[in-house]
């Protein structure tokens, strides 16, 4: 017996769309490399003891003039192996992105479901709030939340909590698309007869929302989640680039790009190029896969 997924139209189409397969595997490779960074990375760039300042500014694939070591992507000013820092940076970027999307999804889906199903004043309040929030660029919202949270936290916690704060601020700035889509789908689903027949059984609103409506509105949520994932990673990179994100001792891709930017005009191009290329590849693969997924799950095409 084959697994039903292998028989599904989704998988059938996936196999026949080279761009979907390619982007999916590029993404998969990046994720695997990030997860197993400890094993794959040739150096441990965040152990100060293993660093040798003499290795600084080694160009990619060239032997260092003092130590003779060769680095795949070169090194930065402190002699850290760029390839290894990118691997560890990816890990942080992916983690922040994933958690932020998850947070945005939980908030957006919950509010959207309530707005769509309950309707009336509740709907108006939730959706007008969403309207107001969406008039600000999400990066601004994230910075605002980030700033407020940093201000409220006691100084000794600021450093430890910076990633959590980052996740919360990105998550809170990206929930609106989820809520809007879910509300729209809920409005359609709640008029369907299977929901009416559930109401005739006297089930409560939360029971109907969670058990009947939620499973039927998940496909658009999945599409938005993939696209928001790429967005969240970019937002994180932007915030880190601006210096309000993760600390430099635990750099994400954005932090690496910021560091690299300092050296761009002094000829050490690789310090900027490789982290930036990685970010590009990551965001592009997620977006391409998300586009394909959207085409597939589009109810009009079904």
């Amino acid at each position: 017996m084959k697994h039903p997924f292998l028989e599904s139209d989704l998988y059938y189409n996936f196999k026949r769309t080279p761009i979907a397969v390619l982007s999916f595997f590029v993404f998969l490779i990046i994720v695997i490399m990030a997860i197993f960074a400890d094993i794959i990375a040739p150096h441990t760039p965040f152990e100060p003891l293993t660093l040798n300042l003499l290795n600084g500014f080694t160009p990619p694939m060239q032997a260092n003039e003092f130590t003779g070591t060769i680095f795949l992507m070169g090194t930065d000013d402190q002699g850290r192996d760029l390839f290894s820092t990118i691997l560890f940076g990816l890990r942080i970027s992916l983690f922040v992105g994933l958690m932020a999307v998850f947070l945005a999804m939980v908030i957006g889906v919950t509010l959207g479901l309530i707005a769509g199903f309950v309707g009336g004043v509740v709907d108006t309040v939730i959706m007008r709030f969403a309207d107001i929030q969406i008039t600000f660029p999400s990066i601004l919202v994230a910075m605002l939340i980030y700033g407020v949270a940093k201000g409220l936290l006691p100084p000794d916690l600021r450093y430890e909590m910076s990633i959590t704060v980052l996740i919360i601020s990105i998550g809170l700035s990206e929930w609106v698309p989820f809520a809007r889509t879910v509300r729209g789908s809920t409005l359609v689903e709640k008029e369907k007869e299977y929901v009416i027949s559930a109401r005739m059984l006297g089930l409560s609103y939360p029971q109907i929302m969670v058990r009947h409506i939620l499973p039927n509105i998940l496909s658009p949520v999945l599409v938005i989640a993939t696209i928001t994932f790429a967005l969240a990673i970019i937002t994180e990179a932007t915030l880190s680039f601006l210096g309000v994100g993760v600390p430099t001792t635990k750099p994400s891709l954005g932090t690496l790009i910021r560091i690299g930017q300092d050296f761009l005009f002094s000829g050490e191009w690789w310090i900027l190029l490789f982290p930036a290329l990685t970010l590009l590849l990551l965001a592009l693969s997620i977006n391409l896969f998300g586009d394909w997924l959207r085409d597939m799950l589009n109810p009009k095409l079904k």
């Binding site: 369907k192 007869e193 299977y194 009416i196 027949s197 005739m200 059984l201 006297g202 009947h212 039927n216």
Partner: peptide, 23 residues
């Protein structure tokens, strides 16, 4: 009584597609 009333009144709908939860 409301609950037993609910129990004793049921409905069949027009669309055989929308009246069953597809999941």
């Amino acid at each position: 009584i409301k609950s037993s009333l609910r129990k004793s009144v049921q409905m069949i709908f027009q669309s055989p597609y929308a009246s069953l939860n597809p999941r």
